[in-house]
Amino acid sequence: MRDEAAFVEFAASARERLRRTAYLMCGDWDRASDFVQEGLVRVYVRWPRLVRNGGELAYARKAVVSAYLDHARRRSSTERPTEPDPALASAEDVATAVVDRQTLMAALAGLPPRQRACVVLRYFEDLSVAETAALLRCTEGTVKSQTSRALFSLRSVLEDSPSGEQAEGAVSW
């Protein structure tokens, strides 16, 4: 049974959250919308089976991440961007600005796609290592190593910024 009304309600309700996740991975709201749209189409196709076991949101998240990673794979082999993205912070921004959105997005943009996905899923979606591994279809060890490398890179960027001092009592990366 393809309950289209239920799907529409689900899609309308989940879309913004998914879009934020996609944006954090790709750094562009328009492309994030594209990934969400592709992800929701995949959810639609699988909807009857998802409803059967109540895994709609988890599957939708997985579908969006997959759409992003698929695109990243294609892009890495076919596109060579030559102009800097004006939406991202420049090196000078990183050096001078406080830790703000642009700094973070620039730092994220410097990560390989799977590392970026690990960071977003672990620290924005608050998924566990095991959940992230299940979603990315890799081992927990891979998630740990990818996340560790990503955090090392992010720390080197973010802690160089003026507001990058480690907060009192903050958890070490």
């Binding site: 959105r101 924005f124 992010l154 480690q166 958890v171």
Partner: peptide, 12 residues
Amino acid sequence: MVNELRELLRDA
């Protein structure tokens, strides 16, 4: 820093 990263991600 992880907590800070979480906040940054949400804010961004």
